[in-house]
């Protein structure tokens, strides 16, 4: 999911950086003082998730976890994901510093989207909570894949083909992230409901 250095053109990189800065500013403003620790926990989870690889046939995929980060944090997911991506770039050479802004848009913006789309389902009933988590995990990867295709559109010139390749490659990740997010949300609601921005019923 991380776009490497030297692929995207200047205007795409600058637009991505500008959007990431704006998003981060909103995110920082919206972080609740009492929830800063939760932001750090989820940022750490995102930072480590990319190191967990799963072999599926001949290919190897890694977890992203932007769905659960977004679902639990809303706009605060943007600075959380920015920090994690910056550290991944510096420590593990994932993506690149110049592509950081675009990578933030690709992974963090869908995270914010799933917060508003699926949070209302959380806490209603155990089944709905799991489904909400599953859809959040899956949908975040789907939108990220589309945004990745869109960012590469300007260099590959074939949006449909590129996006289809990316989405197809990420179908296993969507399913795995959906299941992981579903279980995590259900689990957290039982044992640590304070981390969820909803009241336990």
């Amino acid at each position: 999911m991380h776009i490497s250095e030297g692929i995207l053109s200047g205007p795409v990189l600058i637009s991505g950086a500008a959007m990431a800065v704006a998003g981060t500013a909103i995110g920082l403003k919206k972080i609740d003082y009492d929830r800063i620790v939760h932001v750090a926990i989820l940022s750490s989870a995102f930072f480590v998730a990319s190191l967990i690889h799963i072999n599926i046939g001949p290919s190897s995929v890694h977890l992203i976890l932007n769905g659960i980060v977004g679902l639990l944090l809303g706009f605060a997911a943007i600075p959380a994901i920015l920090t994690a991506l910056l550290l991944q770039s510096v420590f593990f050479q994932y993506g690149g510093l110049t592509a950081l802004g675009v990578n933030v848009v690709v992974m963090a913006f869908p995270a914010v989207m799933v917060h508003y789309l699926f949070l209302p389902m959380i806490g209603k009933s155990p089944k709905l909570t799991f489904l909400g988590g599953f859809l959040a995990g899956m949908f975040a990867i789907l939108i990220s894949s589309l945004l990745l295709g869109l960012a590469l559109w300007f260099t590959d010139k074939n949006f449909l083909e590129t996006s289809l390749t990316i989405i197809t490659a990420h179908i296993p990740v969507m399913i795995i992230e959906g299941i992981v997010t579903g279980f995590c949300v259900t689990f957290l609601l039982k044992v640590y409901p304070e981390i969820l921005p909803v009241k336990k019923k």
Binding site: H53, I54, N55, S60, H62, L63, Y94, G95
Partner: peptide
């Protein structure tokens, strides 16, 4: 179950 692979990095 998740970390079934020793493959770690995702840089190219």
């Amino acid at each position: 179950l998740l970390p079934v692979s020793q493959a770690f990095a995702h840089r190219v």
